[in-house]
Amino acid sequence: MPHHFTPLKLVAALPVILLGLASLWPSLLCAQNPLTGFPAEYLSPPSINHWFGTDQFGRDVLARVVYGSFSTLSSAILAVGISLLWAIPAGLLAGLGSVHVERAILACADIVLSIPEIFLSLSIITLIGPGAAHVALAVGASQAAGFVRMIHTEVARIRASEYIESAAGMGATFSQIILRHVLPNSLNPALALASLRLGTAILAISTICFLGYGPPPPSPEWGLMITEGRDYLSTAWWITTFPGLAIIFAAWTTNLVSHAIRRPL
């Protein structure tokens, strides 16, 4: 079915466009530098010059929020990429392999899943130390097991469907069935899942950064900005409020993308 672009769909796509622009081309959205501040203008409330106000060093909060989106989004994408790297082969193997392979992989996934994600990623952090890339690695590794389960479910569902049976009935080989039917049909749900997981990854990453295991200051990281702004909350609410809203916005946007991917077919 052809997709028609309507004004409503454009409005729905706006958050995605905004988030994409912020992380890929931040200088387009704000002119200020996120790292150098104007000490004279420290803790000034939102104004025409500084839409989101300035922080304790006089840095523009809007610039920090906009530049922070790259840090958060790239870490989240890296995390999901790492999960997928593990999960796709394991999930496919579980869905397509013999009963024993399936059982072994699912048992391993069960074990990893039983450890709450936050503890798993914090343990990995104790192992490899803090830092932006390390946080992404820790979050990605701890999310992989959930992915394995979901990919397995999806592949097993497709494999049990009648059109697979009828393809086998037409004399197609096992590998032909996988390449022609199973993989293309599981691609869409997997993508939808990945973008949904992007949202959870964003939350998990900002939580770990809030706890202080992310990139060191003065990096413009949303979780870190909230930690730093805490002490000034009573006098300068904007330093913590806007990064928080940015996290909600980013998580919600990935939700929208996931819904949009799942809908067709």
Binding site: G244, I248, A251
Partner: peptide
Amino acid sequence: ITSGIPVFWLEIV
């Protein structure tokens, strides 16, 4: 939307 609210931020607020 609420599923995307970071707990720590909400609590600080």
